[in-house]
Design a protein around this nucleic acid. Structure first.
Length: 421
RNA sequence: GGAGAGGUGGCCGAGCUGGUCUAAGGCAGCCGCCUGCUAAGCGGUUGUGGGGGUAAAACCUCACCCAGGGUUCGAAUCCCUGCCUCUCCGCCA
């Protein structure tokens, strides 16, 4: 969410941002409502001031056994008027808030301007795609041949876009999870294991609600939501808190299952593990001081890249353009891993700086030493990494002609074997 | 699921027969004084958000005693609803 005062004082910046993101919102109308709200608020507060004064006078008169009926009559009218004004103000505030909640974050000046993902910019690459002396198979064929992934039974149990790993496949999933958590915690990220169903406030705090309800699994009664990413519970750890400057930066890493409706993606990636309703992911989350957040984005991205490098999987880093940038993000790097069967790079991590956008919604502030007042922290997060897609990348990149799969060096202590066959 | 207790300022804790509560008192923190010494004493000070004001401050003002409604001229205090915490019983991974 943007600050109402920021919007009214920087209307041109906000308009430019919306234009670059291909958004159309009636900003001027919102500003008119905001002006109206402030004038009503002033009237209401003036009357309250009057009432506070007169109420004390009434108390004094009564204690002296004197008549106060005139003042009481007057105050009846004043209180009535205050209530009228407050009702109007509340409606206007609701309108303004709904409006602000639907304004996306402002892209950083370094973000390339572009219409859609075709205009994203490759920043760097790492590793060379392996040369195969045979036709590489899709991961779902490898998985079924080795009997480590079972799509049919998963759809019997739950439905389409669910999967079941077993044997060394299940162990590979668990090994990836442990490897990533161990690596991340060795760099100072604190491991947390949060709730994976959350309330509406948490979803609103990180920006999933109210705009993206259709993408979430919801539990109706009582109302809860399944998290689409650990970003939600982990960022909300500090909702409505005032941190002290010396607490910052705070780094967390968390493994959680993630749940997504994938509404609107019918026909996309229908086979395999790429797009599932339920998948596992290890996430990196940071709370930092405003002046540090863009440097922290670079180091967070490097930390995610390091996982791919240690797994020796080729990838590239892409800076998202304004048209492809997520709602809450001011800047995002996607990591895309090379998948030989598809002959394509596919997203395996998305690292974003949300500046104060989530912090304002979730009310996460900090206090500087020796300074009055509070400021919003900046929040960042990135996958480190999506486990299902990493499993795909390992199977496809490490497959052998005989159908077996070599276990990456760094996973062998976790797997206990060198080859899956 | 049944029975009971409770949610007050950074923390502890009074107030809860409605009106100097602009919330006592204590602790902690900060500033100063005194005292020659890691102690004690004395005085002062301390939150958050909004509106106005200013070059920026100062300053003025409104709101905040879990949240949301209600009663009243006036609510921390009375009434209703919800959320959360704790204790006991039952059930359960």
């Amino acid at each position: 969410m943007l600050d109402a005062r920021f919007v009214r004082e920087n209307i041109d910046i906000v308009k430019k941002s919306l234009e670059n993101r291909n958004y159309i919102l009636p900003l001027d109308e919102c500003l008119t409502i905001e002006g109206k709200r402030r004038s009503l608020l002033r009237e209401s507060e003036g009357l309250r001031n009057r009432r506070n004064v007169v109420t004390d006078e009434i108390a004094i008169l009564k204690s002296k056994q004197q008549d106060a009926s005139g003042l009481i009559e007057e105050m009846k009218g004043v209180s009535h008027r205050i209530k009228e004004l407050d009702d109007k103000i509340k409606i206007l505030e609701g309108n303004i808030n709904d409006f602000l909640l639907n304004i996306p974050n402002i892209p950083h000046e370094s973000v390339p301007v572009g219409k859609d993902e075709a205009e994203n910019v490759e920043v760097r690459g790492w590793g060379a795609p392996r040369l195969f002396d045979f036709e590489p198979l899709n991961h779902w064929d490898i998985g079924e041949m080795l009997e480590i992934i079972d799509f049919e039974r998963a759809s019997k149990i739950a439905g389409a876009r669910f999967s079941l790993t077993k044997g060394l496949g299940a162990k590979l999933e668990r090994s990836l999870m442990n490897f990533m958590l161990d690596l991340n915690t060795s760099k100072g990220y604190k491991e947390v294991f949060p709730p994976i169903i959350v309330n509406r406030e948490s979803m609103t705090g990180t920006g999933q609600l109210p705009k993206f309800e259709m993408e979430l699994f919801r539990i109706a009664d009582p109302e809860f939501y399944l998290i689409p990413t650990a970003e939600v519970p982990v960022t909300n750890i500090h909702r409505d808190e005032i941190l002290s400057e010396k607490d910052l930066p705070i780094y967390y890493t968390a493994y959680t299952p993630c749940f997504r409706r994938e509404a609107g993606s019918y026909g996309k990636d229908v086979r395999g593990l790429i797009r599932q309703h339920q998948f596992n992911k290890v996430e990196l989350v940071k709370f930092v001081k405003p002046e540090d957040s863009y440097n922290e984005l670079e180091s967070l991205t490097k930390d995610a890249e390091d996982i791919l490098q240690k797994l020796e999987l080729p990838y590239r880093v892409v800076a998202l353009c304004t048209g492809d940038l997520g709602f809450a993000a001011s800047k995002t790097y996607d990591l895309e891993v090379w998948l030989p069967a598809q002959q394509k790079h596919r997203e395996i991590s998305s690292c974003s700086n949300f500046t104060d956008f989530q912090a304002r919604r979730a009310n996460i502030r900090f206090k500087r030493e020796g300074k009055k007042g509070t400021e919003f922290v900046h929040t960042l997060n990135g996958s480190g990494l999506a486990i299902g897609r990493t499993l795909v990348a390992v199977l496809e990149n490490y497959q052998q002609k005989d159908g077996s799969v070599i276990v990456p060096e760094v996973l062998r202590p976790y797997m206990g074997v060198e080859v899956i066959k």
